[in-house]
Computed example of a mutant assay.
Amino acid sequence: MTGPVLKLQPPDVAAFAPYGDLVLPPEEPGARRFYSTALHARGETSAPVLHVNNVAPQALPLAVTRIERHPFAAQCFFPLDVSRYAVMVMPSDTEGRPLPDRALAFLMPGTIGVIFNPGVWHLGATVLDRPGHFTVLMWRGGPMQDDDFRTIAPLTLIDPMDPLAGA
């Protein structure tokens, strides 16, 4: 394994909150959960873009060397046909550079979606086990580019059941 090792954690609404929202189904039949407030941060001249992607599976342990962020709008991933997927997030320093030493990683089931807040550094769509499909919603357009990709020193994501994960 290369670089620091991050054990994938189970989904945790509180731990993820500084980076966005986990999209959970309501517990009661007929109930709704609203996530609309996450959609309001965007450029005035941007427009919503909705697409479905097809993601090839990756295996754990996974060396991560590339991350992304969208400074001006939230990005939403809703699993359509996904077994499990890895989510990694990290804060920025005061200059907007990623802080890999403060990264968090989660092992998500295909029943929970993710909304990344504007400006959050994150791993791109990464499915495990088999190919997967997400519906992705974000905003594009306007005078400012909203895709920022960075190469980072390798971080290794491991399965929580991996013996190297420790206690």
Rank of each mutant, 00 (worst) to 15 (best):
A59M: 13
L60W: 11
P61H: 12
L62E: 10
T65D: 09
R66P: 08
I67M: 08
E68A: 08
E68M: 06
R69K: 10
R69E: 11
H70C: 06
P71I: 11
F72T: 13
A73N: 07
A73W: 00
A73E: 05
Q75C: 02
F77I: 05
P79E: 06
L80S: 07
D81Y: 11
D81V: 12
V82T: 07
V82G: 01
S83D: 15
S83E: 15
R84K: 04
Y85W: 10
Y85I: 07
A86K: 03
M88I: 09
M88Q: 05
V89N: 00
V89P: 09
V89Y: 08
V89F: 02
P91S: 11
T94C: 09
T94N: 08
T94L: 08
E95L: 14
G96F: 13
G96V: 06
G96R: 12
R97G: 04
P98N: 06
P98E: 09
L99E: 14
L99C: 09
P100K: 05
P100A: 13
R102D: 09
R102N: 11
L104N: 09
L104G: 06
A105I: 05
A105Q: 07
A105M: 06
F106C: 07
M108W: 06
P109T: 15
P109G: 04
G110P: 01
T111S: 10
T111V: 02
I112Y: 01
I112C: 00
I112H: 01
V114I: 14
I115G: 01
P118M: 02
G119C: 07
G119A: 11
V120T: 14
W121I: 06
W121R: 11
H122G: 00
L128A: 05
D129L: 08
D129G: 09
D129Y: 05
R130S: 14
G132V: 02
G132H: 05
G132S: 07
H133S: 14
T135G: 13
L137W: 12
P143E: 15
